[in-house]
Design a protein around this nucleic acid. Structure first.
Lengths: 217, 217
DNA sequence: CGATGCCTTGACCAACCTCAAGTGGCGTGG
DNA sequence: CCACGCCACTTGAGGTTGGTCAAGGCATCG
C-alpha cells in the first residue's frame, strides 16, 4: 500500500485524523494557480502534472508527481502552480493549517517536509540545467532515465519505460514542441538507442549512450 | 548591518558560536559541485552565482544570491551546484552538522529554513517557466524586474537597476548566448523600454511594457 | 599609449518551430 | 465483425529565431 507512504508509522497515526482520501480521473484538476492553498497533498497512486501558464496559453510543466510525492508544500499565500491528474490517481489530502499545527507539536514532521523540499529543489535545479542548456536528444535521454529510475524505486521494471503522459505533456515539460519530441524519439529509435513498439512504451537499448546524452559522463 | 540578517535576535545568539565570517574576492569559489557539504552559508554583502556544468563546458546558472539568502541548504550527500562570488562578498559560514543539531533543539530554526527552501522552490519554478517558454525579450524583462525588486527590498533604489554580473553570467542564467543578451538589450533600448547609459546600469523607462513582457499581465 | 577584456554589431547558418498533411490505434456503432 | 470516426502521434516542407563565427568599439589599467 502506497497510501501516505512517505510517512512513518507513528506520524501516520497522528495524521489519520486530518486526512481525506481522494480519487481523481485522468485530466481532473486538483488545484489551480491562484487558489487559496488550504490543502497539502500526498500522491498515493497515479501520476500528476504541475504546470504554470503564460497569459497567451504557453504552458510549462514544472514537474510530474508520482506516488510518495508531496504537492502544495511550496505555497503560502496561494498555490503557485496548477496540479492535474495525468492518469487516474489517488491522493491523500491534508488541511494545511492543521498540518502546520501538527508540525509545531512534532518537529520531526517538519524535518521530513524540509527533506522533501530539499529533494524537490535539487530536482528543480536539474530541470533548470536541462531547459537552459541541453539539446532535444539530451532532454529526452534525461527524461527517460528519470522515469526509469522512478519506476525502479517503486519496484516496477525500469526497462520498458512506460510513459503515462501524452506527447504534449512531455513537450511542455522539456520546453519543446510535440513535433520535436516525436522527431527526437524517432531519431533515437533509428539510431538503435531506444525501441518504441508503442508510443507509450520505451525500451532503453543503449543505456550507456542514454547516460552519455543525459550528461552523466 | 546585513550580517546573518535572515535570522532573529535570539537565534543569532545561539548561532554566534557556530559562525565564521568570510570575505570573498570577485570570482572566488565558495564551494564546488561534488564537494562534501560541510557548511551552510548566509550571504551578508555582495552577489554570488550558483551554477551547474555539463561535461563539455556548457554552464547554467541556477540562481544569483544576494544578502540574506542561504546557500548549501539543499545539499545532503554533496553540493549539487558550484557557488562563486560575482562581486566582492561577505558570507557567514555555519558548520552543517552543528546547525542541524541546533535545529533539533530549536525547531523554529528549522521552520525558518523550510520557509527559505519554499521561497527558493517558488523561484526555481518561475525560472523553469522562463527557460522553457519565454522569448529572449521576456527573459530579460523578467530578469530586470527581479533585480529591481530585490534592490528595493534592501532599501536600494529600484530604478536604475545595477547589474553586478557580466553578460556571460546573464546569458548563462537566462539560457541564452551573450550575443543574444546584448542584442536584446539593444533592441529594448531602441524601443525606449529601457535606457542603458552604461553596460551595468539599466533605467526602466516603460515599466508597464516590461511587466507585460515578463508575463505579469 | 598600448594591451586586455568585455561588450556590441554584423553576416551567415542550423536548429527548432510553425503549419499542414498523413498514419495508426482504439472505441463505437452499424 | 467490420467500418467509421476520433484523437494522438508522426512526418514533411518551409520559415524564423537564436546560435556561431568573426570583426570592431570601448573602457579600464598598467
Amino acid at each position: 500500500m502506497a497510501i501516505c507512504s512517505a510517512l512513518e508509522e507513528n506520524e501516520l497515526v497522528l495524521l489519520d485524523k486530518l486526512v481525506t482520501h481522494l480519487q481523481l480521473d485522468a485530466g481532473e484538476v486538483l488545484f489551480q494557480e491562484e487558489d487559496a492553498p488550504r490543502y497539502v497533498f500526498n500522491v498515493a497512486t497515479g501520476t500528476l502534472r504541475i504546470s504554470k501558464l503564460l497569459s497567451d496559453g504557453r504552458r510549462q510543466i514544472t514537474g510530474f508527481m508520482f506516488p510518495g510525492d508531496f504537492l502544495g508544500v511550496a505555497s503560502s499565500r496561494a498555490y503557485t502552480c496548477t496540479a492535474e491528474a495525468v492518469t487516474e490517481a489517488a491522493v491523500c489530502r491534508f488541511n494545511a493549517k492543521e498540518l502546520e499545527a501538527l508540525c509545531d507539536a512534532r518537529p520531526e514532521l517538519e524535518h521530513r517536509l524540509l527533506g522533501k523540499a530539499r529533494d524537490e529543489l535539487v530536482a528543480a535545479q536539474d530541470h533548470i540545467l536541462l531547459l537552459g542548456r541541453k539539446t532535444p536528444a539530451e532532454r529526452i535521454a534525461t527524461f527517460l532515465l528519470m522515469l526509469s529510475r522512478r519506476a525502479e524505486t517503486w519496484g516496477m521494471p525500469g526497462d520498458p519505460v512506460v510513459l503515462p503522459m501524452a506527447r504534449s505533456d512531455i513537450a511542455d515539460y522539456l520546453g519543446l514542441t510535440i513535433e520535436t519530441v516525436s522527431r527526437t524519439f524517432t531519431r533515437l529509435k533509428s539510431q538503435g538507442v531506444i525501441d518504441l513498439p508503442k508510443s507509450s512504451q520505451v525500451y532503453l537499448q543503449k543505456l550507456a549512450k542514454l547516460r552519455e546524452l543525459a550528461g552523466e559522463a
